[in-house]
C-alpha cells in the first residue's frame, strides 16, 4: 500500500498541500481527482521524490519511499508530455529504460519490441520521434512509462491525444497491469473514465483530502436516496417523497430514508409486477461537483 500521511508542502506563503493523508491500496486503479490547482501535481511530485514534503511521510508497504525506490519501481506519465524529438523511437525507449536502472539486456529489448508491436509502433521504431504524429508520440510516451515494469504507475491524463482505438488499447493495458498486481494512480478530469476504470478514488480540494475510498463506497456514502421504479402497467400508487421524473409506468423519486422506498416497493409488489427497482447512486461527476462547491470546502 502507498500511504501519504499528513503531508504538507508550501511554496512561500502558498500552501499547496495541508495535512494530506491518502491510502492507495496495492493492486488498485486509484483515481486522483480534484479541480485545477487542488494540489494533485504537487502530491504526485512528492510521491515521485521530485519535491520533498515539508512534513509528513510517504511510505510503500510500510517502508519510506526513497529516491532509489522511485527510480526503479515507479513509472510516471506526466500531463505535459515530453520526449526527445531528434532521437528515434527506439533510442528514446532505451534511454528511458536506462534512467530507470534497466540494463539493455536482450530480454528488455524483446519486451520493448513486443510493446512496440502491441501499439503498432514497431515499423516506426527507427524513425525520428519528432516526425511521428502526436498520437503516436503519446503512445511512445506511455511505453516509456511502463517498459521498466514498475510496481507503481502514475498516469496523469493518459488518454489525452489518443484516438478511440488506442484509448481502448490503453484501457485494456491498464486493466492488464492491474491484474498483474501493479498499482495504478490515475489522475484525470474525465469522470466517465474514472467510473469505468478506477476501483478507489481520492478527491483533493485545496490541498486536502475531501473524500476517499472504494468507488462503490464513496458513491454509497454520497447517496441521495433516489430510486427508479418501473412496472408492467400504469402505476397504481404515488411514490413517497419527491417525484423527480414520471411517466405512466416509470417513476424516479427521492425519499428521506431507505425504509420509505422499501415500504413503497412492498406495497407496489402486492398490486403490480415490477420490471425494475433500483437505487440511483450519484455519478462521480455529481459527487465531484457537489464536494467542490460545498461552502465548507471553499
Amino acid at each position: 500500500m502507498l500511504h501519504l500521511t499528513d503531508v504538507q508542502k508550501s511554496f512561500g506563503t502558498f500552501s499547496a498541500l495541508s495535512n494530506l493523508s491518502v491510502t492507495v491500496p496495492t493492486g488498485s486503479i486509484f483515481g486522483l481527482l480534484g479541480p485545477n490547482g487542488a494540489g494533485k501535481t504537487t502530491a504526485i511530485r512528492i510521491i515521485n521524490s521530485i519535491y520533498q514534503a515539508d512534513s509528513g511521510t510517504v511510505t510503500w508497504q510500510d517502508s519510506p519511499v526513497t529516491e532509489e525506490w522511485v527510480r526503479k519501481h515507479v513509472g510516471y506519465l506526466p500531463e505535459e508530455r515530453g520526449l526527445y524529438p531528434k532521437m528515434s523511437v527506439q533510442e528514446n525507449l532505451y534511454f528511458f529504460a536506462q534512467i530507470h536502472r534497466q540494463d539493455l539486456t536482450p530480454e528488455l529489448k524483446q519486451r520493448i519490441e513486443s510493446l512496440l508491436e502491441r501499439f503498432d509502433l514497431l515499423k516506426h521504431a527507427k524513425k525520428e520521434l519528432g516526425k511521428l504524429s502526436k498520437g503516436m508520440q503519446q503512445k511512445v510516451q506511455i511505453l516509456a512509462t511502463i517498459l521498466h515494469d514498475p510496481e507503481l504507475l502514475i498516469l496523469d491524463e493518459p488518454f489525452t491525444g489518443l484516438d478511440p482505438v488506442n484509448t481502448r488499447k490503453l484501457k485494456d493495458l491498464i486493466r492488464e497491469l492491474q491484474q498483474e498486481g501493479k498499482t495504478i494512480i490515475l489522475s484525470t478530469h474525465r469522470m466517465e473514465q474514472v467510473e469505468e476504470l478506477c476501483t478507489n478514488i481520492v478527491l483533493i480540494h485545496q490541498g486536502q483530502s475531501v473524500l476517499q475510498g472504494p468507488v462503490r463506497e464513496v458513491k454509497t456514502q454520497n447517496r441521495t436516496n433516489t430510486f427508479i421504479l418501473e412496472t408492467d402497467s400504469d402505476l397504481t400508487e404515488t411514490p413517497p417523497g419527491t417525484i423527480l421524473e414520471q411517466s405512466d409506468s416509470r417513476v424516479k423519486f427521492q425519499v428521506e430514508n431507505h425504509e420509505h422506498a422499501q415500504t413503497f416497493l412492498a406495497s407496489i409488489l402486492a398490486q403490480q409486477s415490477v420490471l425494475e427497482f433500483r437505487e440511483v447512486l450519484p455519478t462521480l461527476e455529481e459527487i465531484f461537483i457537489q464536494q467542490v462547491n460545498t461552502p465548507d470546502h471553499d
Binding site: N48, S49, I50, E67, V70, R71, V74, Y76, P78, E80, R81, G82, L83, Y84, P85, F96, I99, H100, A144
Partner: peptide, 16 residues
C-alpha cells in the same frame, strides 16, 4: 527545450 517540452518532469522523477 527540456523545460519547455516538460521532459524534465520525467527525468527528475528518475534522477537528481
Amino acid at each position: 527545450e527540456e523545460k519547455k517540452n516538460r521532459i524534465v518532469e520525467i527525468l527528475l522523477a528518475s534522477m537528481r
